[in-house]
Structure formats: structure tokens, C-alpha cells
């Protein structure tokens, strides 16, 4: 038996510092938030230690539920757009010549190595009233007045989709790459059309990649507040900027904490749902 192979230890020294750190700065803050969500505040916005469930009953009001539903709807739209635009690109990458693939993959990933804030700002300069796109549209005569391309739902969708696209492309590409090409040949020999091959072989066999991609897009999209903030002009209230505002401007920390707890529960439920869905379909989902 190897001297250094898996050894049973009570709690190995090597994992102690990291675990302690995570307990202190991940576990503890979340407990603080949970506790905070049951507290009240006085008329000055200060937190007072009177336990109540009022924050949670407030959460069940229609306007508040609507904010959560709207955020989920936006995340769903972004996920579907990423799938729609990312899938063909992943398919193209996976079917390109083997020796070209690492280069092509790098070509697709490099833009996403840059800060998401910087990329969001770049879109704002293009879409603004005095921006490049408007001046182009006016110079070719498609419009005489500059259009309002920013600060609407479409702008948010564009910014979010652009930001999250690689999280869909990479897992889908990984699952398409593992697809056995002889399956396609076999289907073709038996007379299947390209479309049939796509719908009955390629799509079903890349389901695991699609599910991974959906988790990686949908969940972070729920918590991203600066893209809706900057590209939506702060007019659309989503659960992410709703939480952010409770802690910054509104000084209503207990309610912001209750919203955060709701968002965590929702996130965990969604992950569990996605994973169950993928288990039933027998596809491996890789998140790392």
C-alpha cells in the first residue's frame, strides 16, 4: 500500500485553513442574512432586534412576486437566446477540422476574457442616441431620426446574451465533440435527411451540454444587476437590483435579506430541477 495514498484522517491539517475560511466568510455571512431576514427596522431604516415574519409575508404580495417572476422570465429569455445563437456556433466548432479547433475555440473565448463591465460599456457606446449604429442607420437612409436603441427590454436582452454566450457555447461544444460520428453516418446510410440527423441524433445527444449551459446561463443571469441597470436605464426592476437597492438607497436591510433568501432557495431548487431532469435523460452534466 502506498504511503501517501488515501489516508483516513480525522480532519486533515491541509484542509483546515481553507475550510475555516469558507465557514467564516461564506457560511457565517449567509447565516447573518438569514437572521437579518427575520428582523425589523425602525422608521430611520435602522435594524432592530424584533423577530418577525413580516418580510416574508411582504414577499408574497403580488407586486413583489411579479418582480421575481419578471427576473425569471428575463433569465429564461436570455438562456433561450444563448442557445439559439450559441448552438450553431458550437456545432460549427465541433465539426471543424480537428487541428483548427483549438484555435477557433480560442477565437470565440477571447472576447469573454475581458471584463463584462467593459463589454457592456462598449455596447452602450454603440447603441446610444449619438452612437455608431444610429449614425450608420441614418447615413444609409434607413431612418431620418436617431432611434432609441438603449434603455429598453431589447437592450437588456442584447447585453445579457452577449455576456453569457460562452457559458452556453462551451458545454454544448464539449458534448458535441464527444458525439460518435459513425452514428451520423449510420443514420445517413439509412436514408435520414440532414434535418432528421440534426433533430433525431445531434440534438438529443447534446442534451447534457444544453442542460449544463442552461444552468450556467440561467442562474448567474438571475443575480446580475449591472447590465439591466446600465442598459435598461434603471427602469426595469429585477430581483437583483431590487435587492441591491434595499441595501444601498432604501435602507431596508431586513426585506433585502428576505429577498436574498428567496433568491438562494430559488437557485437551489432550479439546480436540483436541472440535475434531476438531466439524470432522467441519462446525460452527464458537467459544471466545472
Amino acid at each position: 500500500m502506498s504511503l501517501f495514498s488515501k489516508i483516513n484522517r480525522v480532519f486533515p491539517f491541509l484542509v483546515q485553513p481553507g475550510t475555516l475560511w469558507l465557514l467564516l466568510f461564506t457560511g457565517l455571512p449567509l447565516l447573518v442574512v438569514l437572521n437579518l431576514s427575520f428582523l425589523s427596522r425602525n422608521s430611520y431604516g435602522r435594524v432592530v432586534y424584533e423577530y418577525t415574519i413580516a418580510n416574508y409575508t411582504r414577499l408574497l404580495q403580488w407586486e413583489e412576486l411579479l418582480i421575481i417572476l419578471r427576473s425569471m422570465w428575463l433569465s429564461l429569455e436570455v438562456t433561450l437566446l444563448c442557445l439559439l445563437f450559441g448552438y450553431p456556433l458550437a456545432l460549427f466548432l465541433s465539426r471543424a477540422a480537428r487541428r483548427l479547433q483549438p484555435f477557433l475555440l480560442l477565437l470565440v473565448i477571447v472576447p469573454f476574457w475581458t471584463s463584462s463591465l467593459v463589454r457592456t460599456y462598449a455596447w452602450i457606446t454603440i447603441l446610444q442616441t449619438e452612437g455608431l449604429l444610429n449614425s450608420f442607420l441614418m447615413s444609409v437612409g434607413w431612418t431620418s431620426e436617431p432611434l432609441t436603441l438603449l434603455y429598453n427590454h431589447g437592450a437588456i436582452l442584447l447585453g445579457m446574451t452577449y455576456n453569457f454566450l460562452p457559458f452556453m457555447i462551451l458545454p454544448v461544444y464539449a458534448s458535441l465533440q464527444k458525439l460518435d460520428p459513425t452514428l451520423i453516418d449510420a443514420a445517413r446510410d439509412l436514408g435520414a435527411s440532414s434535418l432528421q440527423v440534426l433533430l433525431r441524433i445531434i440534438l438529443p445527444l447534446s442534451k447534457g451540454g444544453i442542460i449544463s449551459g442552461a444552468i450556467l446561463v440561467f442562474i448567474p443571469a438571475l443575480g446580475y444587476f449591472f447590465i439591466p441597470d446600465l442598459m435598461g436605464g434603471n427602469r426595469v426592476i429585477l430581483v437583483s437590483n431590487h435587492i441591491s437597492l434595499r441595501f444601498t438607497q432604501a435602507r431596508d436591510w431586513p426585506y433585502g435579506a428576505a429577498l436574498s433568501v428567496a433568491l438562494i432557495v430559488l437557485t437551489l431548487l432550479l439546480i436540483a430541477m436541472f440535475l434531476r431532469w438531466s439524470k432522467r435523460s441519462g446525460e452527464k452534466v458537467e459544471l466545472a
Binding site: F25, P29, L30, G223, I243, S260, I264, L268
Partner: peptide, 18 residues
Amino acid sequence: FVPVIIPEVVMGISFLAL
């Protein structure tokens, strides 16, 4: 895995609260 799956905005406010 908690810091990876928790929405960033929630992590931010939880640090602030702590």
C-alpha cells in the same frame, strides 16, 4: 461550491451584513 452557486448580488450583501 457555495461561493460558486450563490448569486453574486447575494454574496455581496451577505458580506456587507457580516
